Amino acid sequence: MSSKKAVLRANGFTFKQFFVAHDRCAMKVGTDGVLLGAWAPVAGVTRVLDIGTGSGLIALMLAQRTGQTVSVDAVELDEQAAAQARENVQASPWRERIHIHQDDIRQWAKQCENRYNLIVSNPPYFTPGVECASPARAAARYTADLTHEILLQCAEELIAEDGFFCVILPATAGNALVEHALPRGWHLRSRTDISDNEMRPPNRVLLALSPQPGELLLDRMTIRGPDQRYSEAHCSLTRDFYLFR
């Protein structure tokens, strides 16, 4: 039995230390979210914010990767998704450290008094086009309600001086986000380009931006090797989460 089949259930996804139900969420558990949750830098963080948490996947991953004194806030606009994220958190070992907020991040950011060492987001990236099956799915997929400019503005209001803002995006959208961010005072500190295999160009990019300048780390990762098995780099990054890795 493949690892994918072994971890999938009808209504969610089983990881090594937690289960994520996602049947009431517009966007399901996927590779992008897992990569971001495993990749984002957590050394020295005390407060973490997940913007657009959906099922709570990335918030749960970051709670697993951090110590008991680290608090995780997760904001989700959709009521059904936020409710399911709360249920996932309550069923996890980190229910005391993760706090789900059902709100518009633009309004929430204005009221929040905390500053975060790490802000993460697996944001919408499609420009409005083909009609979606539901308004919730449209909000999760398209940038009409949460443009990357708005996302950057919210991160600016909430980031600590030494913090990192991390996203995963298609390569073209990621390049555009960096072009918007640099004139606003952000500095690109880490970038990992991701391709499906060695024969294909990168189609996803992991980005870490910070208000502080510093060394830029550049990397590239393939998901699968020539034999179509998951690459060693991918397995190493996600080993603490996927079953049978």
Results as ranks from 00 to 15, higher is better:
210 S>R: 05
137 R>W: 00
73 D>H: 10
29 V>N: 08
225 G>A: 12
155 A>W: 04
216 L>P: 01
228 Q>T: 14
130 V>S: 15
115 R>T: 06
156 E>A: 15
155 A>R: 04
199 M>A: 14
209 L>M: 09
94 W>G: 10
18 F>K: 09
66 T>P: 11
231 S>T: 11
33 G>H: 08
161 E>C: 03
153 Q>V: 00
222 T>M: 09
3 S>F: 12
28 K>Y: 01
155 A>P: 03
157 E>R: 12
35 L>Y: 04
21 A>L: 07
33 G>C: 07
26 A>M: 06
23 D>L: 03
4 K>V: 11
134 S>E: 09
112 C>E: 12
105 I>T: 08
158 L>K: 01
239 R>K: 15
28 K>C: 08
135 P>E: 05
146 L>F: 00
215 E>R: 13
148 H>W: 13
42 V>Y: 04
11 N>H: 15
61 M>Y: 00
68 Q>V: 12
166 C>W: 10
65 R>K: 15
15 F>Q: 05
127 T>F: 06
181 A>G: 05
150 I>W: 03
27 M>G: 07
55 S>D: 04
237 L>Y: 05
73 D>V: 01
196 D>K: 13
147 T>N: 08
233 A>L: 10
169 L>S: 07
19 F>D: 08
111 Q>S: 14
233 A>I: 11
167 V>W: 08
13 F>C: 12
233 A>N: 12
197 N>D: 15
142 Y>I: 00
128 P>M: 09
121 S>E: 03
132 C>P: 00
129 G>W: 07
43 A>M: 02
5 K>L: 13
159 I>K: 02
229 R>E: 15
186 W>C: 07
234 H>S: 11
216 L>Q: 06
88 N>Q: 04
34 V>Q: 06
225 G>D: 15
11 N>D: 15
206 L>K: 01
43 A>F: 00
217 L>N: 13
104 D>E: 08
114 N>E: 11
45 V>A: 10
92 S>P: 06
218 L>A: 09
169 L>T: 08
4 K>E: 02
94 W>V: 07
101 H>K: 08
37 G>D: 13
209 L>T: 08
15 F>E: 02
115 R>N: 02
165 F>S: 07
166 C>N: 02
141 R>C: 08
111 Q>C: 11
23 D>R: 03
109 A>F: 00
236 S>N: 14
12 G>N: 08
14 T>E: 11
136 A>G: 06
205 V>F: 05
109 A>Y: 00
127 T>S: 14
223 I>T: 11
86 R>I: 05
245 R>G: 01
184 R>W: 01
47 R>F: 11
241 F>Q: 04
63 A>M: 07
207 L>M: 07
5 K>C: 03
151 L>N: 09
35 L>H: 04
61 M>L: 05
168 I>Q: 09
68 Q>P: 12
90 Q>W: 01
86 R>E: 14
199 M>Y: 10
208 A>Q: 02
219 D>S: 14
